[in-house]
């Protein structure tokens, strides 16, 4: 037994020396990004997080590893594995990773974590939250002004408080423009599969369009793609969410509610790279353009100047506190 162990110890020592050397020499920080079930190609929420991290990789020269969960039970194992493998910063994307990050962050107090959409109070966790209701309010204003039929729609992904927050803000925005406009809302489902079900998203959209709706706002991850297909077929308007989705069907996507997960993720990585990372709860809203309405060449013609000026003035009024946007999170308490 003793004879066996001495060469092994030698090997370990060599490894340790090399390990410290390589760390001291290169020192690009290692970042692990854990995406939600939608995956980096959902063209929406996860895509935004991925682009932020990719941007950081190019500009800051960090080492990036991206993993995607195939089911909700995988999150904890993934965070744990990344923490064990000496990743300097592990980023969880999505509300369903809250519990996993809470547990793993407590078990690895010297590792740093960032978490999008969920709140964990721990000194080594930076929770990145967004004022979705404010952005959704803007979408409601745009939808109500673009609608000719007096009916607009909302399609949510999974029925959870986060998406209810979108819905409530949107409805308030619609009513702010015209209280007589009717808002239909539907949800894709009650499990996390709802984020990946474009055919169901399309059915819901076709059903709403069939009932006279002419603008639909969707916050349903990859299921948004079904809405865009339906909008193209029926020649009606759609509104995207999280990423800028105007390009997916140019001319049919009125605007998108930007949720700058990319910027928040980039900032968290940059702080960690500069050694200035701090835990805490960071809220991004209209003020820092963490949420906003997307305007680009793809919706230049359909998002009229009238709508754009109104959006700007509504933004100012919300920031000045003249418009109170109802927040589902607050109303539940």
């Amino acid at each position: 037994m003793n004879k066996m162990s001495s060469p092994r110890w030698g090997l370990l020592a060599v490894c340790a020396i090399f390990g410290t050397l390589s760390q001291a020499m290169a020192a690009p920080i290692r970042v692990g990004l854990v995406l939600d079930k939608g995956g980096k190609d959902d063209k929406s929420f996860n895509a935004a997080a991925f682009h932020g991290a990719q941007d950081a990789q190019q500009k800051l020269g960090i080492q990036l590893k991206v993993v995607e969960a195939t089911d909700d039970n995988a999150f904890e194992a993934m965070h744990r594995a990344l923490a064990q493998k000496q990743f300097d910063l592990v980023i969880g994307v999505g509300i369903s990773q809250g519990d996993a990050v809470k547990k793993v962050a407590a078990a690895f107090p010297d590792r740093r974590f960032a978490l999008v959409d969920a709140e964990v109070s721990a000194p080594n966790v930076r929770s990145l939250l967004f004022q979705e209701h404010e952005g959704s309010f803007l979408m409601g204003v745009a939808a109500a002004m673009a609608s000719r039929s007096g009916k607009v729609g909302f399609i949510g992904g999974m029925e959870i408080p986060l998406i209810k927050r979108f819905e409530m803000g949107y409805q308030a925005g619609v009513r702010h423009v015209n209280p007589k406009i009717e808002v239909l809302s539907s949800y894709v489902g009650v499990t996390s599969e709802a984020w990946n079900n474009p055919p169901k998203g399309k059915e819901l959209a076709l059903s709403q369009y069939g009932r006279g709706v002419d603008v639909i706002f969707a916050a349903a991850g990859a299921s948004n793609l079904g809405l865009f297909d339906a909008a193209e077929e029926k020649q009606k308007f759609a509104i995207g969410s999280d990423s800028n989705q105007n390009w997916i069907k140019p001319g049919r996507v009125l605007t998108s509610m930007l949720k700058r997960v990319d910027v928040a993720v980039f900032n968290a990585i940059e702080l960690a790279a500069q050694g200035r990372f701090e835990g805490g709860i960071i809220r991004h809203g209209l003020g820092d353009q963490g949420v906003d309405a997307a305007v680009d060449a793809n919706n230049d013609k359909i998002l009229t100047r009238e709508i754009r000026t109104r959006l700007e003035s509504v933004k100012k009024q919300i920031l000045a506190g003249k418009i109170q946007v109802p927040d589902y999170y607050q109303q539940r308490k």
């Binding site: 599969e193 990946n196 079900n197 474009p198 793609l225 297909d229």
Partner: peptide, 17 residues
């Protein structure tokens, strides 16, 4: 039918049970 009929592409986990 699901991917090229009811949707416009195959997307991740779209069969969904």
């Amino acid at each position: 039918v699901l991917s090229i009929g009811l949707a416009s592409a195959y997307s991740r986990n779209m069969v969904a049970g």
